[in-house]
C-alpha cells in the first residue's frame, strides 16, 4: 500500500508533520514515468475491481438468491392456505391471478418443496416455480392439478428452485398438493429441447392429436439447460399414479417434508 505516489501526493498537510515522515518537498514534479505508472496502476486496479465484482455477483447468484427464494416461499406459503379456503367458496376459477400461489410442489428425491404461482412471466417466477396458465399453452386449456391434461410448471435453474432437476430419474415421484388432494406423479421422461418446443406444455405433449381430449394426467417441469445458460430447456414429464385426499394425510414419500419438520430441516 505504500506506493510511489505516496511520496509525491499532496503537500505535507497537518498529518505530514504529525507523522513526521514526509521527506520529499511538496514541489516535486511529475515525470513521464510517474504518469505512465499511475495510468497503468489505475487500469490494473479497475480490472481487479471488475473481477472481484463479477465473482461476488456469481456468489450472489448461487447463495444470495437461495436465501431470497426461501424468504419469498415462506410468504407465499402463508397466503396459500388462505387462498385454498377462499377457492372452495368461490369456485375453482376464482383467484387465478398471475403471481398468486396456485399449488404446492414436492420433490422428495431432492428434498425440495415450493409454492407454485400462477403464470410464467419473469415477474411471476422470480422466486418460485410458475404454472403455465390457460394463456400460456397453445390449446388455451391448462390442466388443474390431477386433471387429465398437462399441469406444466416453469422454474429458474437456480439453487433453491430447479437447480438439481437433472438428477431426477424415471420412476421418481413428484407430489402436487392443491386444496383437496395430494397427487403423486412418477417421472416418465426427461429430455432437453430448444426453447421453441412449446408443445412440451401441450395437454398431450407426446401426441398433438390428443390435445383436445387428453387421456393422461401429466405433470411437466421446464427449466433452463445447461445450468446458468439459456440455450436449451430441460423438460421433465411425469404421469399421475395416485390421488390421495388430504384427510388421509400426506403420502409416505413426502411425509418427512411436512411443514412442521421442514422448519428444522432448513
Amino acid at each position: 500500500m505504500v506506493s510511489t505516489s505516496e511520496r509525491h501526493s499532496r503537500p505535507a498537510g497537518r498529518r505530514g508533520h504529525f507523522r513526521g515522515r514526509r521527506r520529499k518537498p511538496p514541489q516535486r514534479r511529475y515525470t513521464g514515468g510517474d504518469i505512465a505508472r499511475g495510468i497503468v496502476r489505475t487500469i490494473g486496479e479497475l480490472l481487479f475491481t471488475a473481477g472481484i465484482l463479477m465473482l461476488f455477483f456469481a456468489a450472489y447468484e448461487v447463495y444470495g438468491k437461495q436465501f431470497k427464494t426461501d424468504q419469498e416461499q415462506q410468504q407465499l406459503a402463508q397466503g396459500l392456505e388462505e387462498r385454498w379456503s377462499e377457492q372452495e367458496e368461490r369456485g375453482p376459477d376464482a383467484g387465478a391471478m398471475p403471481g398468486q400461489a396456485n399449488s404446492r410442489l414436492y420433490i422428495p428425491e431432492l428434498d425440495l418443496k415450493w409454492v407454485v404461482v400462477n403464470g410464467v412471466s419473469q415477474e411471476d417466477i422470480r422466486y418460485s416455480p410458475g404454472h403455465y396458465g390457460d394463456d400460456d399453452v397453445s390449446g388455451g386449456d391448462a390442466a388443474a392439478p390431477g386433471e387429465k391434461g398437462n399441469y406444466a410448471v416453469a422454474g429458474h435453474r437456480t439453487p433453491g428452485i430447479f437447480w438439481d432437476l437433472d438428477l431426477l430419474e424415471d420412476g421418481d415421484s413428484i407430489v402436487l398438493e392443491d386444496g383437496e388432494n395430494f397427487y403423486t406423479y412418477e417421472v416418465i421422461e426427461e429430455r432437453t429441447v430448444t426453447p421453441d418446443h412449446v408443445e412440451v406444455v401441450d395437454p398431450d405433449p407426446f401426441d398433438p392429436e390428443n390435445n383436445d381430449d387428453p387421456e393422461r394426467a401429466l405433470l411437466t417441469l421446464t427449466t433452463c439447460a445447461p445450468k446458468l445458460n439459456n440455450t436449451h430447456r430441460l423438460i421433465i414429464h411425469a404421469e399421475l399414479t395416485d390421488t390421495r385426499p388430504k384427510e388421509d394425510g400426506m403420502p409416505d414419500s413426502i411425509a418427512h417434508m411436512a411443514p412442521e419438520n421442514q422448519a428444522e430441516g432448513e
Binding site: 410458475g130 403455465y132 439459456n230
Partner: peptide
Amino acid sequence: FNDGAVET
C-alpha cells in the same frame, strides 16, 4: 441465464 420457460 435465468429464464426457465419455453417461449409461449
